[in-house]
Design a protein around this nucleic acid. Structure first.
Length: 611
RNA sequence: GGGGGCGUAGCUCAGCUGGUUAGAGCACUCGACUGUCACUCGAGAGGUCGCGGGUUCGAGCCCCGUCGCUCCCGCCA
């Protein structure tokens, strides 16, 4: 007998039901349950235990009227987090004994037999937490992950993660995408992030690399005619961490053949919609779009948060006629004066505006110019140079504050981006409930090093340039746009991709522009992909989503570490199993590796784990 | 690589301007309790104040170094 479809899946030889799904409809049934002692209350004559399993909690009741004395004393003695098997009758609680805060609160199980099958030592961290209890330090949660993972909140996150994976698989499989695997032991890629290296025992002095992404392989699948590929792929990057960045992370990796940009974008919209619906959220059928150029121009950022407007403006023409050295010099050197008008910002104190300037300076700006209009008067360093025309052109309402950066765009954009975000936060313009999706289109193909002028690929070297741009500006590749796109939500990048170069001639040109024109060098780095492309490549392209980040957003978790079962710390350490560890000299010798004594980490305080 | 924050009992924290024997709540142990649901009540046990060095008559507190966690910049798509 089962009370729900899930219940029937979870019944086993040892249990008839699970804890969290028992309801009034189960009253009268004799059930066998297994679970962890979440909490217990010993009233002397009566004992209550809240029993927990993946599905939730149910109250077990032990009393002399239905429980044998030895069973009751065993119940009183069992410690929290011990695993027990019980048998008893599901009973309706009297109305004044109902617990409305528990889904199972209308019933309890009157236990007749109890077996402690997994006695637990006193837990190092509390699993059951009272209202208002603070969370244990993250360090301890990670060190005792076997306890932290028992917490219903974390279990809910991982369950959601599972469901999102299944939705992804179904969505893509239903559309003809094949889930194909690619190697974990692969070849170092010179592009992008640092690789994790794995020494080869068989080949002295040679190394595998863990993949930063399956990029090259998925393109090869296209060359091989698999037409549509996806993978929920583990990727590795040996870079410093953030709250939303782990050294080992999961991507939804997608590639398709005989497609153009729109095909991938509508697939992406559909997949995001399916994921959002699975988590009980809404996502629009089509996302707003913005060019990279506009994003940088109006928001100073390639992933603008569209929950608020507060756009940047170009004030160069307003400043041009003014006899103001700071801005005239900037304008004379070819830079612009950009800024934003903050409604109501005139009310901010000198100190508050100084804080904004500190943000701008932190992003590389020399300073932040201010112009305030309060009580009909203008003040700030710009004020005394104002002409009537300029005054009108700024368009400040009374109470407004205008902030400017006079610098090249590559400096003013990030500076004003930070200022804009902080202003929005202060003005409480950010609607936390809002979800504003955005497709950022037409990224530039190359990034120019400001000092050397060398070109670097913004996306990666296999991204296809806009054909029209190649035609229109054949000799100024810095102006080429790429057929690349990002999916952005509320200022966070969810994923990105591009149409790839399938024409070997274009690919060679790209390499030449990137300074790897030497064919031997190309072969050394990307030979196996180039071979594949030359052997007949269909037009293809794809996209990849940061799966952990999506799971984090949809679960409302504050950190990636709360949607990954066994995450690393910001020092890329695993406190639970204690990785990484020093390795005995013999093991290193077998790998043909010697570690310089000076570079041995002397972490006296490193986790005393299982090394 | 750089900057900020944190580190005191198993957990969360307090600890005054450097001064007697380092405290509280929860958890734990023992005892009492027949309707609790963060049960309640009584008693008890529990400390290398992250680690090392220094200043001082005296350091949880000040200084230097170091380890760990965390947030951010650089880095990373």
């Amino acid at each position: 007998m089962s009370s729900s479809p899930e219940q029937s899946f979870l019944a086993t030889s040892l249990r008839s039901d699970t804890c969290g799904l028992l309801r009034r409809t189960d009253v009268g049934r004799t059930v066998r349950l297994g679970g962890w002692v979440h909490r217990s209350r010993d009233l002397g004559g009566l004992v209550f235990i809240d029993l927990r399993d993946r599905t939730g909690l149910v109250q077990l009741a032990f009393g002399p009227a239905w429980t044998a004395a030895d069973v009751q004393s065993a119940a009183a003695a069992v410690g929290v987090e011990s695993v027990v098997l019980v048998e008893g009758e599901v009973v309706a609680r009297e109305s004044d004994r109902v617990n409305p805060e528990m889904p199972t609160g209308e019933v309890e199980v009157r236990v007749t037999s109890l077996k402690v099958v997994g006695p637990a030592v006193t837990p190092a961290l509390p699993v059951a937490r009272g209202r208002g209890d603070k969370m244990p330090a993250e360090e301890l949660r990670l060190r005792h992950r076997y306890l932290d993972l028992r917490r219903p909140e974390l279990q809910a996150n991982l369950v959601l993660r599972h469901r999102l994976m299944q939705v992804t698989r179904r969505f893509l499989s239903d559309r003809g995408y094949l889930e194909l695997e690619t190697p974990i032991l692969t070849k170092p890629t010179p592009e992008g992030a640092r690789d994790y290296l794995v020494p080869s025992r068989v080949h002295p002095g040679e190394f595998y690399a863990l993949p930063q992404s399956p990029q090259i392989y998925k393109q090869l699948f296209m060359c091989c005619g698999y037409d549509r590929y996806f993978q929920i792929a583990r990727c590795f990057r040996d870079e410093d961490l953030r709250a939303d960045r782990q050294p080992e992370f999961t991507q939804i990796d997608i590639e398709a053949s005989f497609i153009e940009r729109e095909d991938i974008l509508s697939l992406a919209e559909g997949l995001i919609g399916a994921l959002w619906r699975e988590a009980g959220h809404e996502a629009p059928a089509h996302f707003d779009r913005m060019s990279y150029a506009d994003a940088m121009e109006f928001y100073g950022c390639d992933r603008p948060d569209m929950r608020y407007d507060l756009r940047l403006r170009d004030f160069s023409s307003v400043f041009a006629p003014l006899d103001f050295a700071v801005t005239s010099n900037a304008l004379a050197s070819g830079a612009r004066v950009r800024g934003l008008v903050v409604p109501g910002g005139a009310a901010w104190s000198r100190k508050q505006v100084d804080e904004l300037e500190a943000l701008a300076k932190g992003a590389g700006a020399g300073g932040l110019l201010r112009l305030r209009r309060a009580d009909g008067a203008y003040d700030g360093p710009v004020a005394k140079f104002l002409t009537d025309d300029a005054r009108d052109a700024f368009g400040l309402a009374d109470g407004d504050l205008a902030l400017f950066v006079a610098a090249p765009d590559r400096i003013s954009s990030p500076a004003l981006d930070r200022v804009r975000q902080e202003c929005a936060r202060r003005l409480e313009l950010v609607d936390d409930a809002a979800q504003r999706f955005l497709l950022v289109m037409d990224f530039p193909m190359f990034e120019e090093d400001p000092t050397t002028g060398a070109l670097a690929a913004v996306h990666h070297p296999f991204t296809a340039p806009h054909p029209e741009d190649m035609k229109a500006f054949p000799d100024t590749p810095a102006r080429w746009r790429a057929l690349a796109y990002d999916v952005v939500l509320n200022g966070t990048e969810l994923g990105g991709g591009s149409i790839r170069t399938s024409d070997p001639a274009v690919q060679s040109r790209m390499f030449a522009l990137l300074g790897i024109g030497d064919e031997a060098e190309q072969e050394r780095r990307f030979g196996f992909l180039l071979e594949g492309l030359r052997a007949g490549a269909p037009p293809h392209g794809g996209i990849a989503f940061g799966f952990d980040r999506i799971a984090m957003l949809l679960s409302g978790a504050p950190s990636l570490r709360d949607v990954i079962a066994f995450p690393k710390t910001t020092a890329a350490r695993s406190l639970f199993e204690g990785a990484p560890v020093a390795v005995p000299a013999d093991d290193l010798a077998e790998l043909h590796i010697a570690v310089r004594e000076a570079s041995r980490s002397r972490s006296a305080n490193s986790p005393e784990g299982t090394a």
